[in-house]
Simulated assay, not measured.
Amino acid sequence: MTSSYGLSGRAALVTGGTRGIGRAVAEGLAAAGALVCVTGRDAAEVRRTAAGLGGIGLAGDVAGPGHAEAVTELVLAEFGRLDLLVNNAATNQPYGPLTEVDADAWRRAFAVNVEAPLRLVQCAWRAWMREHGGSVVNVCTEGAAHVGPHVGAYGTSKAALLHLTRQLAGELAPGVRVNSVSPGLVRTEMARFVWEPGEAEVAAGLPLGRIGEPDDVARAVLWLASDAARWITGADLLVDGGTRVRAASTAGAYAVHDRLRGHRAAAGDP
């Protein structure tokens, strides 16, 4: 993706930056002139992605002990600054009704989707942003606005991330802006089990007539991260192809989740 946003000389950290939305964001930031560091769980993928971006990377569990501190130290050591933080890494597990959710799996969802972004913001704030300013963008989900079968842990954790975004925006102003994007259904590996069984059917139900691409979300992230959005903080930008404005949106969301449950059951998934 080419970009008109001038981010030359700024340093950016993108978690979960080796695939899907995170990869598109990292590529967009690099195209805009930023120095980019990516994280991911697969060391080989991190190395390949970082090399392709002309940047750096660190493999590991975003919620692991010391990971936030380690990647922040790496960015400061290599780039000398940390201006932009994109909290993209996430887990959509555990899948199932909350009445049956395992306590450890529930805690894992919040560790990855809520606590890790907070820790990274804390590290970025202490290491650079408190004195020099910066911009944070959290990747949430359109689904945090409604309920649906079997995605309660994911949706609840992402709803918490939305509130965390607003809370941090208030606490870190005026020097640091904190915003979020909420994608709808996007063509990523994490969402493959939703769109692959019946993409045409799903796309036909959206006002814009297609599911999203990672680049669609990346463009929104870059805009919020850049000075083009310099008077915006505490905002959540929907990037959902019109999902939320379609007729009977709540019923439509249930219909998609019900169809998804049928596909998973047929495949033998829990």
Score class of each variant (00 low, 15 high):
Gly155Leu: 02
Asn179Gly: 09
Ser226Tyr: 07
Leu118Thr: 12
Gly60Trp: 03
Ala235Lys: 04
Asn179Glu: 05
Val14Arg: 11
Gly155His: 02
Glu78Phe: 01
Leu208Ser: 06
Ser180Trp: 01
Thr188Ser: 10
Ala248Met: 14
Ala77Asn: 05
Gly155Ile: 01
Arg219Lys: 14
Leu35Lys: 09
Arg187Phe: 14
Arg107Thr: 13
Val112Phe: 02
Pro97Trp: 09
Ser3Gln: 06
Val176Glu: 05
Gly57Arg: 04
Leu237Asn: 03
Asp269Thr: 08
Ala70Val: 12
Gly148Arg: 00
Arg219Pro: 01
Glu201Ile: 05
Asp258Leu: 13
Asp258Met: 10
Arg259Cys: 10
Gly33Met: 04
Met129Cys: 05
Leu13Lys: 09
Ser135Gly: 09
Gly143Ile: 01
Ala235Pro: 04
Thr72Glu: 13
Arg108Phe: 10
Trp231Tyr: 15
Gly52Phe: 05
Gly262Glu: 14
Val75Gln: 11
Pro94Met: 11
His150Trp: 13
Tyr95Trp: 15
Leu206Arg: 00
Gly198Asp: 14
Ala200Asn: 08
Cys37Ile: 09
Ala255Cys: 11
Ser8Asp: 13
Glu73Arg: 14
Gly33Ala: 05
Glu199Gly: 02
Asn88His: 08
Val25Gly: 04
Ala103Cys: 13
Val217Gly: 02
Met1Tyr: 10
Cys123Ala: 15
Ser249Val: 08
Met1Leu: 12
Val136Pro: 07
Thr91Lys: 02
Thr18Arg: 06
Gly252Asp: 11
Ser135Met: 05
Glu131Leu: 07
Glu131Met: 03
Asn138Gly: 12
Leu206Glu: 02
Ser249Asp: 07
Glu196Pro: 01
Ser135Asp: 03
Ala229Arg: 04
Ala144Ser: 13
Pro97Arg: 03
Arg48Cys: 12
Leu53Ile: 05
Tyr254Ala: 14
Ala26Val: 02
Ala191His: 07
Ala145Trp: 00
Gly134Tyr: 03
Ala153Ser: 08
Val71Met: 14
Val25Leu: 04
Tyr5Trp: 11
Asn87Leu: 10
Pro94Lys: 08
Leu162Thr: 04
Thr72Ile: 08
Pro65Gly: 09
Ser180Val: 09
Ala105Cys: 10
Asn113Pro: 05
Val112Tyr: 00
Ala145Phe: 00
Ser226Lys: 07
Glu201Tyr: 11
Ala145Val: 02
Val256Tyr: 00
Phe110Arg: 11
Ala51Glu: 15
Arg81Ala: 15
Thr49Val: 12
Asp102Lys: 09
Ser157Gln: 04
Gly80Ile: 12
Ala26His: 02
Phe110Ile: 07
Arg47Leu: 15
Ser157Tyr: 02
His163Cys: 10
Arg264Pro: 00
Leu162Cys: 13
Arg187Tyr: 14
Gly55Ile: 02
Leu162Phe: 06
Leu222Ile: 07
Gly155Cys: 07
Leu98Asn: 10
Arg19Ala: 10
Ala89His: 03
Ala90Thr: 04
Ala105Gly: 11
